[in-house]
């Protein structure tokens, strides 16, 4: 499956969803929908978050799973937290500009 693009290739702004389609009956919905926060993260980060949830939020378990040390996994999580905060901030600033 193709990787979902989240940023504009021309100006690097956040992309929104314009249309959604039901694969069953081909009903198409058009509008302006914001991508959920997790979907806006890079694929690697998204995969990490999913694995982290599956490991019941245990960094020790994640470290075992990925074959990495505990601080390396914790640092990776800290980076993702920072990225989420930044994405949230950018999203809020974008909304304020529109208003």
């Amino acid at each position: 499956m193709k990787v979902l693009p989240t940023t504009c290739p021309a100006c690097s702004s956040q992309l929104n969803v314009k249309s959604l389609i039901c694969e069953q009956c081909q009903t198409e919905i058009q509008g302006q929908y914001e991508l959920p926060l997790l979907a806006r993260l890079p694929t690697d980060d998204e995969d990490f978050v999913l694995e982290f949830i599956k490991a019941s939020g245990s960094l020790k378990e994640m470290a075992k799973l990925l074959g990495l040390s505990y601080p390396t996994v914790r640092n990776r999580l800290d980076e993702i937290i920072e990225r989420i905060k930044l994405t949230e901030k950018d999203g809020n600033e974008g909304k304020e500009k529109k208003l």
Partner: peptide, 10 residues
Amino acid sequence: PFRFVAGFHA
């Protein structure tokens, strides 16, 4: 090596 080993093992 700390990417792979830390804590009590290290």
